[in-house]
Design a protein around this nucleic acid. Structure first.
Length: 527
DNA sequence: CATTAATACACC
DNA sequence: GGTGTATTA
């Protein structure tokens, strides 16, 4: 649920930059012959041609939409080029897109923080989107080298759209607007246009990826207007929203198009209050909205209708969690523990691989492992019942994650099935069906730079003081089959040390990593 | 029980 | 810690 934040500074300059149909661009860079052709990226292709997750502008203009199946897309656009997402370990592997996103993330902040502004902020919003706070840079520019003092304005900047102005906009006009607007707030946006053109060009040059940007006075507006611009079938465009145009543009906007209102809240506004557009929303008092949706959401709604949003750009470029998941739709639903275990092993491998990269590249470690699953029970009355999610301390090591994930699953399964879970199955087949599994790692923190070795740090993070030399804390707890398995696995540390690719090898002299997260308190018992 | 696979965040 | 909502490729 959205939450209201007071808008502190009124004259910020915020840019929302996102890559145009990103996955398509990544594939087109890999296969340049696809450039300019109607192209889409699909996940899998066995069932109805796979699911489209990214669609090129050419394909969009022949009516192809995300959320179509590959076969539908072929029907709508016979010439469409369908590129499959790579598959690893039997599941879609998005790593090539993550790396491509990192390429971009490595360039933009360099401009924003190092060159243009001392205190420019950059926030990774998703795999291919960043928010930039260019306020300081824009203010400096306005003070030291305002647009009207420049001999020429960047060509890239001149291509910008200025929303609310006449359609037949030519560069001369843009240049005029940038230079002569009276409002300070708009002058700052003009500076924003010029500033953001720089990293955009550099990204194109170094990665071959084009991006679009929205520049406005806060996150909500820049986000919305960059999307509005990309919805106009025009890649590689910047869009700026003059102060005076905000009201006009917003008022006709369908409420469901607004960020945060695309789901249930938006539907509720429509059906419960008869609000379809922002101008409808403007008719409601803050109090009225608060009565319906609570103090926070009510205030947020009242503000957002007016284009007011106080959310700050966070200075963060790395993700806060990593996850690996897969769905098993329809007849593919998993029905046996061993099958579930197989897939948890695959997911855990991928997760561990990504945790290892994060550790190596960013010196960060995660401390919580969470398992999510979805399930249904065909015979039962409430086949809808939610499969509970479970978490436990994260122990580094493939086999450890695999084991812990499986144990978490079994604990959740017991809850899900209730007291009848084990017995009533008797001669009947198991009634549960697993339709989705995912493992994720969160609570990621930087390793303190002063720490002498990673090992020492891991030890310091141990959630219980090591009470025994054996390194098997479970011996004081009710011993379960699964727990004893993990103990025996811990004891054979040489086995794992002999496979440096499987588990992180810390210092050669410390086989103790396994024990650092030895707290098995949260690990469920077996049936 | 067919979009699939992430991610983030508010609430309790 | 666990649930639910929302967004986007």
């Amino acid at each position: 649920m959205p939450v209201a934040r007071p808008e502190t500074s009124d004259a910020r300059v915020i840019a929302h930059v996102d890559m145009d149909c990103f996955y398509v661009q990544v594939e087109q860079r890999k296969q340049p012959e696809l450039r300019g052709l109607p192209t889409a990226v699909v996940q899998y292709n066995e069932w109805q041609g796979g699911a489209l997750i990214a669609v090129s502008y050419e394909a969009r203009s022949c009516g192809v939409k995300r959320s179509m199946r590959g076969e539908e897309a072929k029907a709508a656009c016979p010439e469409i080029q369908l590129v499959q997402v790579p598959v690893a370990r039997g599941k879609a592997d998005l790593n090539t897109y993550r790396s491509a996103g990192s390429e971009v993330d490595a360039i933009i902040p360099f401009y924003v923080v190092s060159i243009l502004a001392q205190s420019g902020k950059c926030e990774r919003a998703s795999i291919d989107e960043v928010y930039l706070d260019l306020t300081d840079a824009a203010e400096s520019m306005l003070a030291d080298a305002p647009p009207e003092s420049l001999e020429s304005i960047d060509e890239e900047a001149l291509k910008s759209h200025i929303l609310g102005m006449s359609r037949e906009m030519i560069s001369r006009r843009v240049s005029d607007w940038i230079c002569q607007k009276m409002l300070i707030a708009d002058k700052l946006l003009g500076c924003g246009i010029i500033i953001v053109a720089e990293p955009s060009k550099q990204v194109l040059k170094e990665t071959e990826f084009s991006c679009s940007a929205g520049i406005a006075h806060n996150k909500a507006r820049s986000d919305f207007f960059s999307k509005l611009a990309s919805g106009m079938n025009k890649p590689a465009q910047q869009t700026v929203v003059p102060y005076a145009a905000v009201e006009e543009l917003l008022s006709s906007l369908p409420i469901k198009k607004m960020k945060q209102l695309g789901g249930k809240l938006g539907t509720s506004l429509q059906t419960d209050l008869g609000i379809d557009t922002v101008s409808d929303l403007l008719q409601f008092s803050e109090t009225k909205l608060q009565e319906h949706y609570g103090i926070n959401t009510g205030t947020w709604l009242w503000n957002i209708a007016r284009g007011v949003s106080g959310e700050e750009v966070q200075g963060r470029l790395l993700p806060k969690s990593h996850g690996s998941g897969k769905t098993f739709p329809g007849p593919r639903a998993l029905r046996s523990l061993s099958n579930v275990q197989h897939w948890l092993n695959q997911l855990s491998e991928e997760l561990y691989e990504r945790l290892s990269s994060d550790l190596e590249q960013n010196k960060r470690i995660a401390s919580t492992l969470t398992l999510h699953a979805s399930a249904f029970r065909s015979k039962d009355s409430d086949s809808q019942k939610k499969f509970p999610s479970k978490s436990c301390p994260l122990r580094y090591g493939v086999t450890k994650i695999q084991e812990d994930a499986f144990n978490l699953f079994q604990a959740a399964l017991r809850e899900y099935m209730g007291p009848f879970g084990t017995k009533s199955q008797g001669n009947k087949k198991e009634t549960w069906r697993i339709t989705g599994l995912s493992v994720s790692a969160s609570k990621i923190v930087d390793i303190p730079s002063g720490t002498s070795s990673i090992m020492r740090y891991f030890q310091s993070q141990s959630t219980i003081p090591s009470s025994s030399e054996s390194g098997c804390p479970q011996e004081h707890v009710a011993m379960t089959p699964s727990a004893s398995e993990s103990c025996s696995e811990q004891k054979s540390a040489e086995t794992e040390a002999a496979m440096p690719n499987k588990d992180i090898s810390i210092t050669d002299t410390s086989p103790d990593l396994d024990n650092s997260y030895g707290n098995m308190d949260m690990v469920p018992e077996k049936f």
